[in-house]
């Protein structure tokens, strides 16, 4: 059992990232959004923490250490998207292109600023939850030590 966990869980991160990307891309036309994508990634990271332990998980994936910065960057992106229209005299959260205007499409993904907002939310949620997972994992390890 534990062997399976050790082998399988670390490798789950890639598929999880794929799922998350799919959720964001599909989000506007199907179930899910930036938030659920963020939680999916965070849960994969949590599995890594559980199987490898905090130390090894963080060494093997250094990007985790920047989770708080990532979270704040995501939220700043969200704020920027939300409030930049004010500079042009539009109300906050006006999305471009606007209703009726043509949209650039890449497959199922329609490029609007709302998608960028979703990406920002994804970053924030993933970053914030990874930070929480890190704190909890440290808590547990201190006890073991």
């Amino acid at each position: 059992m534990s062997v399976i966990l050790e082998v399988v869980c670390p490798r789950l991160l890639g598929p999880a990232a794929m799922v998350a990307a799919a959720i964001i891309v599909k989000g506007y036309s199907d179930v899910g959004d930036g938030f659920s994508a963020g939680v999916v990634v965070a849960l994969a990271v949590a599995l890594r923490y559980v199987t490898l332990g905090a130390e090894r998980a963080e060494r093997s994936l250094p990007v985790l250490r920047h989770a708080p910065v990532l979270a704040v960057a995501g939220l700043l992106l969200v704020l920027a998207i939300g409030f930049f229209p004010v500079a042009f005299g539009e109300p906050p959260l006006t999305h471009f292109p606007r209703a009726g205007e043509p949209v650039v499409e890449i497959g199922a993904l329609e490029l609007t600023t709302a998608v960028a907002l979703d990406v920002g939310i994804f970053l924030l949620v993933a970053g914030a939850l990874v930070e929480t997972i890190h704190q909890i994992a440290r808590l547990v390890e201190e006890r073991r030590a």
Binding site: V72, L76, L79, P91
Partner: peptide, 21 residues
């Protein structure tokens, strides 16, 4: 409108950055 947005977004964004420091 600008003042209203600024009164929201300035502390909002700055607070997040400050929380990291």
């Amino acid at each position: 409108m600008t003042a209203l947005s600024l009164s929201l977004v300035v502390p909002w964004a700055a607070g997040l950055v400050l929380a990291l420091l």
